[in-house]
Amino acid sequence: MPRLFPWLQTAPLLAVLLVFLVVPLAMLVVVSFYDYDSFSLIPDFVLTNYQEVFTSAVTWRTYLKTLWFAGLTWLVTLGLGFWLAYFLAFVVRSPAWRMVLFVLTTVPFWTSNLIRMIAWVPFLGRNGILNNGLLAVGAIDRPLEFLLFSDFAVILAFVHLYTLFMVVPIFNTMMRIDRRLLEAARDAGAGFWQALWCVILPLSKPGIGIGSIFVVVLVMGDFATVRLMSGGQSASVGLMISNQIGLMQYPAAAANAVVLLAMVLLLVSAMLRAIDIRKEL
């Protein structure tokens, strides 16, 4: 009986994941081979949906654009996240202050992503705070148009939403670095950059890996940020899928979904080669 215990305890988890993850994903694969007309799905085995994905120039551009969004967001959140985590872990000395500042960075996570995106509108718009401010000090003589509804706005929103996912895991691994290693590095004559490069960076790698997986996955699957912040002027795979859903072209959406999933899994497995997450918890 006790030998059955672990299975009984994981049974609910497994049941949820099977019914709401494994079967639906299998369904996606099946439907991606279906045919369709404007009213209904036609069970069949056709490759036209995949042909459309791989032969359309627009689709290729959309995939490349999505990778570009993911790459750029990754670079910015990593650069920002690393130094913010470094500040919290190594510059702030008092544990109480560290806790307060850490909580302050996580509080916005409690608010809706949608609201946090909308919140940029009064800032970046044509008559927004930023444009009005710059006009008032005479830095520009007409409103900057690229601030809202542009790729700039999309990246800004991604950085705003997801830097937290970089800060937390990196901070977590940095806090576990034995401080004596840093003293040893200093005693051995290492300067600030040398200690950073040879001690802190290698030991923070697992946190960087986990943060990177989160950011890349979230950006790759996004549709709302690109839609809202680019004002329909840019595209991503997620947005393309959601548009196809809107047009009831489910098999086409499913084919894109399968390709996107394959891409995400490839990216993540590449990143997982660098770290073993299970050890890092």
């Binding site: 993850l21 994903l25 369904m27 549709f223 859903i245 979904a257």
Partner: peptide
């Protein structure tokens, strides 16, 4: 955790 949300949504919707 890794499967994008919209795919889960679409998959369950189709199911």
């Amino acid at each position: 955790l890794i499967v994008p949300s919209i795919l889960v949504s679409l998959g369950i919707g189709l199911l």
